[in-house]
């Protein structure tokens, strides 16, 4: 394993009385694709959100690409440019065009001129196959297209790591394929990716590692074949059995 680009140590997260993360360690190597699975409420989305500090861990440390994310002296807005995030509900800005969505941070955070940002934004839309939709607003796009614009918005900033929080869960089944296609393409370009998702087929043939979480802890992890065919833990077995029945 090459040197880790994401290192999370002993992450705890409390929401009031709820102890959502109970000491999670996660290391992700450069160019690795890690799948995080687990029942709802197991803390997998919270873990993902702790990595770019959308959620403030109660304790522990997070280092991404050499930057200590939890150090108060860290310029978090600068650090976040290196960590792209894709959300379950897309979260596109409805009052802007697709291109406007992709170029906002390029202009306001990366400091590009409108002309430069438009060129980079169009290139990002091209990568997700939606250059011809640049002038459309989110309301005029299908769910699958919206999610691909959201991916373009993240990759336009040339992040070192991409976080996907259930990227296909809100999509109609026939639209899932186009989003997975874009993710596969990203993977082939060598992007480091951490994906919270239950797309088992995709995990099986694209993931380097599958991490199974339950009740705020990592229960078991390993190559997809090992986790899916031969889980060693009873909880993993039960969960895999449940989702495969569907």
């Amino acid at each position: 394993m090459s040197k880790p680009i994401v290192e999370a140590r002993e992450i705890h997260k409390h929401f009031g009385h709820l102890h959502v993360l109970k000491g999670v360690d996660l290391e992700v190597a450069e160019r690795e694709l890690v799948f995080v699975i687990g029942p709802s409420g197991s803390g997998k989305s919270t873990l993902l959100r702790c990595l770019n500090r959308l959620e403030e861990p109660s304790s522990g440390s997070v280092v991404v690409d050499g930057i200590d994310m939890l150090d108060p002296r860290t310029d978090i807005n600068h650090a976040r440019q290196r960590i792209g995030m894709v959300f379950q509900s897309f979260n596109l800005y409805p009052h802007m065009t697709a291109l406007g969505n992709v170029t906002l941070a390029l202009r306001k955070v990366a400091g590009k001129s409108r002309g430069e940002a438009d060129v980079l934004g169009m290139a990002a839309l091209e990568r997700v196959g939606l250059a011809d939709r640049a002038g459309h607003t989110p309301g005029q796009l299908s769910g699958g297209q919206q999610q691909r614009v959201a991916i373009a918005r993240a990759i336009a900033l040339e992040p070192r790591v991409m976080l996907f929080d259930e990227p296909t869960s809100a999509l109609d089944p026939e639209l899932v394929g186009s989003v997975l296609e874009v993710m596969r393409d990203l993977r082939q370009s060598g992007m480091t990716m951490i994906v919270v998702s239950h797309e088992m087929g995709f995990a099986r043939n694209a993931a380097d590692r599958v991490v199974f979480m339950d009740d705020g802890l990592i229960v078991e992890q390993g190559p997809p074949a090992a986790i899916f065919e031969n889980p060693t833990q009873e909880r993993t077995r039960a969960f895999i059995g449940q989702i495969q029945r569907h």
Partner: peptide, 17 residues
Amino acid sequence: PAGQVEAGRSTGLSRLQ
């Protein structure tokens, strides 16, 4: 929706931006 701010912040926009 809160997701709008989160999306923006995840790309590095400040709270004010």
